[in-house]
Design a protein around this nucleic acid. Structure first.
Lengths: 164, 164
DNA sequence: ATGGCATCCGTACCATAGTACGGAGTCAAG
DNA sequence: CTTGACTCCGTACTATGGTACGGATGCCAT
């Protein structure tokens, strides 16, 4: 794997600023490559770019840099005690699964919200908090019946949390 | 919905500190309830507790407080322009789907890492970065074939990024 | 060899999301 | 009627994750 990118090129390729790469180096999230042959500028590989992209993505999924470090440090290889690595990997997997579950709940709530909102004014008040608990709050689904009379929606019954 | 919790009780129920609730009030993420009848202490409802829980969960999924505010502000109801709400909800849903996809990728990579790691030392070096790109890097899966000859694993070929 | 970039490195500053502190008030039990 | 636990509100401090700045140096094309 040849390292042929300057820090500026690597930063552009990864979609971050040069300073971010240096910051990650200080945090030991990416290794600072050696200066090739006493030259002034370090050279970065495409692998490093991928690593930086991974860091940014994982951040958007709610992992802290510390957690990302742990993720990146996980290695199955013949030199390490695999059972410990395995244990951590299993824990991370559980974490990931929990997050997926919650996102699916939020996705379903948004789906309900969208269904309650046919395009011309909903028939029933419905926030995402209502939509999270399908059996209880508002959010009658109110599909493609746009031709039906949009008056008399019996709405705006419960205001509850107004918050701003 | 009766509001019968003091701020301390609400904080405990939501798993946050009192100061966090006050902070959210300052940020207009939760409404500050009125003091009932000139009494000194405000009273919070179970709804507010749910709202705070939602905020904490969404944060762990990588949403900023600003984004969470937008999520919470989405309401389908007869008084608002539904098509605009719908548009935002659809955008948020896309966001959520993207996150789910990435988490599934990471989950699959962890799965591969776990599979490559039978418990006694892996046959092949494999980091999560390798495991993310199944066809290319390391991470031969190495399931329950512990009886097959574990020599000659042709491992530890590519060290690439060592990073610390 | 010189002008214009880019890199290097250190330090300072910034936004976000809390967390702590301190003084004053309230309320119920002992 | 005091003590202790809690609330209220304002201000200050903290941790995380960058961003910006500035002087020195390096690289390369004209």
């Amino acid at each position: 794997m040849r390292a042929d990118l300057t820090i500026g090129m690597a930063a552009r390729a990864a979609g971050v600023g040069v300073e971010t790469i240096r910051f990650y180096e200080r945090q030991h999230l990416v290794r600072q490559p050696p200066k090739p042959d006493g030259s002034g500028a370090r050279r970065y590989s495409a692998d490093t770019v991928g690593r930086i992209r991974f860091i940014k993505e994982a951040q958007e999924l709610g992992f802290s840099l510390r957690e990302i470090h742990e993720l990146l440090a996980l290695r199955a290889d013949p030199a390490t005690d695999c059972s410990e690595v395995r244990e951590q990997a299993v824990a991370k997997r559980a974490d990931v699964r929990r997050k997926i579950q919650r996102l699916q709940d939020i996705g379903a709530a948004l789906e309900r919200l969208i269904a309650a909102c046919p395009g011309q004014g909903a028939l029933q008040a419905c926030s995402i908090m209502d939509a999270l608990t399908p059996r209880s709050g508002g959010c009658a689904e109110n599909g493609r019946r746009q031709h039906t009379n949009p008056r008399k929606s019996s709405c705006t019954k419960h205001k509850k949390e107004n918050t701003r």
